[in-house]
Design a protein around this nucleic acid. Sequence first.
DNA 1: CCTTAATTCAAACACCTGTTTAAAATAGCT
DNA 2: AGCTATTTTAAACAGGTGTTTGAATTAAGG
Lengths: 208, 208
Amino acid sequence: MSTKSKILDAAEVLFADKGFNGTSLREITSQAEVNLAAVNYHFGSKKELIKAVMSRYMNELSPRLESALNVLCINEVQPTLIDVFSAFLEPLLHLNSFKDNGTSTFLQLLGRGYTDSQGFLRWFLTTQYPGVFTNFTQAVQRAYPELNAEEMFWRLHFTMGTIVFTMSSSDALIDIAQNDFDRQVDIAGVIKQVIPYVAAGVAAPIVR
Amino acid sequence: MSTKSKILDAAEVLFADKGFNGTSLREITSQAEVNLAAVNYHFGSKKELIKAVMSRYMNELSPRLESALNVLCINEVQPTLIDVFSAFLEPLLHLNSFKDNGTSTFLQLLGRGYTDSQGFLRWFLTTQYPGVFTNFTQAVQRAYPELNAEEMFWRLHFTMGTIVFTMSSSDALIDIAQNDFDRQVDIAGVIKQVIPYVAAGVAAPIVR
DNA sequence: CCTTAATTCAAACACCTGTTTAAAATAGCT
DNA sequence: AGCTATTTTAAACAGGTGTTTGAATTAAGG
């Protein structure tokens, strides 16, 4: 296994767990069992390492996501919001076969990226993977045409918040749920719970 | 104005803006125009300072919030979810008269606290201010009795995520919205938009 | 006014941060 | 084999971190 991969593997779980600011290069390199200088040699800087970690997931996710949303728009002239959000399920869960706990890790990273480092990751994602966003808003537009651009803007950000935030603390929440309700829960179960919630939220009656 | 207050005032806006990990004591003390050692003299440690910043807001918010939810449960035998979430509006907006941009700052701090520092703030809030949580779940229970404990658990955390996450990046989002839609938006406007969203989310049909 | 307590201050503490360097080791290629 | 380019390594770098210290200053009370 290459040094580059070892670093990425160690970095992604530490970043997901403790945030980008909260994780030092020394933690990463000792976890990965490589030399400290290897990060700067292979990636140039910590910031570039963060981008590389996110890119590895986005490159796996974004084509599947775009195509799932495309299929939806072709097959259904007016998909329901449940359809739209359900289209995320397969691509997201596929990350689990790409990597152990991949779905959970990726969503945690996404959550970190939105709050850590003053939103530079939001900039990175929207500029590097604009297709995902336009496809998504198009699908929602089709499902709920009465929503104007501004209302959609807010509701999509509320949705983003729900997903990302829940998932960024999903490990802790799953622990609590398993103790309190004595029931096996996994990330797929949580996603299936959240779909009706966000679908109903986006579909809420318009207040003007 | 006391040194203690000057520190708290400077700390809260820096914490809200850059996170707890992302803000150094030297930034705080130079912004507050006090000596570096004053933080450890007056608060003991950085961690205690964080608690003090949060406590100042929680002590202002929590009695108003508890009473608003109590009033709701007394007056209405079965409040709507809109009623329940609307009960948050006045107490939250009151923070604006307690402090400039108080509402926004507090919600940003809440968002930081949930993701920074591995959830120690969640522990702090749930153990120090349990009344808010029990009152809230009681009100939701009344409004939507069909929801069982586990479903409620998840939907309340989704709601928490929506609110906290949106608000923690509300400044950036408000900026975008003002540019894109050429419309004046403030924190109260965002809260009014988010209420129907979360109410509909919690009220979503149950999937079993 | 003098003494005692509370506060402020500059300086240093020990440690951690991301990054760079130059030598050593390894790999690939003819 | 020998030469070259790539990679790994230990060490140092310059600067930032939270915290502590002990002397200087200010405030309070008799």
